[in-house]
Amino acid sequence: MRKIKELVIERALLFSALITIAVTVGIILVLSIEAVSFFSEVSIIDFLTDPEWTPLFTNKHFGILSLLSGTLLTSFIAIAFALPIGLSISIYLSEYAPKSFRRTVKPLLELLAAVPTVVYGFFALMVVTPFLQTFIPGLSSFNSLSAGIVMGIMIIPYISSLSEDALHAVPNSLREAAYGMGSTRLQNSFKVMVPAASSGIIVSIILAISRVIGETMIVAIAAGQQPRLTFDPTVPVETITAYIVQVSLGDVQHDSLEYKTIFAAGITLFIFTFLLNTLSYRIRKKFQEKYE
């Protein structure tokens, strides 16, 4: 009697765990089915090479490159901002700062990641853009620079926390060897610690990239709704995620070609983040073995 009860409970628990697999399968199926349906009407070559994305206009173009460039441009700016700052923070906290400072500051930094993105979007549009406009006169009210910088602020803890954990995990013996030979903290940090913790640091960067590529609200509010293949950070662009929001806010018929575009855009996004996440998982597993 008890044995049956135990078996039933175990099965129920297993079922709950399997739901997670169902979610992944669901995501892949949903995106693929609609994307395949999309590609039955739009050639994949056009999708990958057309420089214009105008599915909602009368003259329709379906080239993902402009949305992709919006996503990559804003993400690049975010990382360019967050990487040196986040890495410096991690080195400072790990190698310079007194323990009490580290203990107080670390949770405060995590706060940056806890702010709802719609709030960051507001900041980007209402505070950062006007501020930047005072010294970049040509800056339009929607642009990738403000959005990128604010996204960068948001992901500082992604890079700083994980990199700091990686630095912390480096055996103390390495630190002692470097200091024993007379190096300064700076030399030790950059010549010994960072290389030793490199896989952990790289993982943190990959995760940060994955996070900003998938970010929606900051760019939807501040970066604009004009798909544009450009490297100019002062003009409006549109990211993949902002496009999906734009369509969802409008009145688009289910099963229309316009409706399917959000899945084509979505699957492109998913492929990118999936590859990044898999890469970071692999590196993390290898990194764990290194110190075991």
Binding site: A17, T20, I21, V23, T24, G26, I27, V30, L31, E34, L207, S210, R211, I213, G214, E215, T216, T241, I244, V245, S248, I262, F263, G266, L269, F270, T273, F274, L276, N277, T278, S280, Y281
Partner: peptide, 25 residues
Amino acid sequence: SILEVNISNLAGVPSIIYGLLGLEV
């Protein structure tokens, strides 16, 4: 191990993709 990798992956999927899933399903 499949379950573990999968959960790690799901944690990194952009939230808007969950929106697309929710919309269809």
